[in-house]
Design a binder for these strands. Structure first.
Lengths: 89, 89
DNA sequence: CTCTTGTTTCGTCGTTTGGCTAATTAGCCT
DNA sequence: AGGCTAATTAGCCAAACGACGAAACAAGAG
């Protein structure tokens, strides 16, 4: 729970999620979208993996990341029920 | 946006929000629910205020905190639309 | 085996966070 | 004014975070 919010609290990581929402991407493809060094991005990946928001599968030399939409969905629903919020949409 | 997630990423602050969901409470009343020292809680209050999740109004010597439900609501809706998630509830 | 590409680990630096105690402000009451 | 209570601010510490460069580690290609 804390992990998910911590993961979402960084703009870079939210952008990564935004990219993965459209389609799966390799670590290298994601890195091209950001000015930060690759090791820095790699750390962001592990934070997102830690929160179970993304998944990485190695195919040969490249690792493709996939968004774990259901986790994000469930986390937000959990918050809404905890705080008794009715989503408007 | 980041402020809201950062605020929500701490369990103590989520608990504070949980308490305020039931009814408004003074800083002292909130502090009674937690083992931390009052200044520590006060810092949490300011983080929550920074994120505009709560509001404090002074009445005499006491400050009563109120949950800003709409901000929380809007923040979560913003995330859902950004990530194109359909809430189940 | 060696080279190249893609990715992660390591070590470091500066900043932020969460906690504390001590000091300060703000308001009320004699 | 002086004292009391409620709450915040100030200052400090240890741990965690975000960033980097350099080095190490796959996995395939030549």
């Amino acid at each position: 729970m804390s992990d998910i919010f911590k993961a979402l609290s960084d703009p870079t990581r939210r952008s990564i999620i935004g990219l993965l929402r459209k389609r799966d991407l390799t670590a290298g493809e994601i890195a091209e979208h950001f000015p930060q060094a690759k090791p820095t991005l790699s750390k962001h990946f592990s934070v997102l993996k830690e929160a179970d928001l993304i998944q990485g599968t190695r195919v040969g030399t490249t690792i493709t990341y996939t968004l774990n939409v259901s986790v994000l969905e469930e986390a937000l629903c959990a918050v809404m029920t905890t705080f008794k919020i009715n989503p408007k949409q």
